[in-house]
Amino acid sequence: MNTAHDAAIGEQIPGRSFGPVTRMDFIRFSAATADPNRVHIEEDVAKAAGLPSVIGSGGIVGGVMSDVVTAWAGLGTIRRVSGKITFPLFPGTTVVVTGEVTGREERDGAVTLEVKVQATDENATPLGENTYWLELPAPG
C-alpha cells in the first residue's frame, strides 16, 4: 500500500467498517457536536417526520468518511469536500467505507479522492458519497 504521497490514480485507500451503529452512537454524536436536531434522538420526532425510527446525523456518515481520509493522508490535509447523504443511517447498520484516488498533481501535492459509504445489508445500500480535494504537506 502506497502512502498518500506515492499513491497512483485508481489506487484504493485503506477503508474500514464501523458498526453496528447504535442509538447511543447517535446520542453521543449529537452531544459531541451540539446538534439540536431531535430526529437523531427522539423516536416520536422521527416518526412524526415519517421515519420508522431515529436516524443518525449525516455528520456521522460524513465524519467516518473524513476520518478514513485523514487516517490515510493526515489531519489538516482536507481542503475541500463535496457530497451527499443518499440514505438514512438507521440503528443496527454496519457501514463500510471505501475510497479511491481519482486525481493528483505532483507539483503542489494536490490529491482528489472519491469516498463511498455502504451498508453491509444484502443490497449494499449506498449511504453517502463525498469527493475530497487534499493538499499534502511536502514530504520529509
Binding site: A32, A34, I60, G63, V64
Partner: peptide
C-alpha cells in the same frame, strides 16, 4: 463540542 466524544461516535 467534544473532540473525544465525536471521535468515539465515528469510531475514530
Amino acid at each position: 463540542v467534544s473532540p473525544p466524544l465525536y471521535a468515539r461516535a465515528i469510531g475514530s
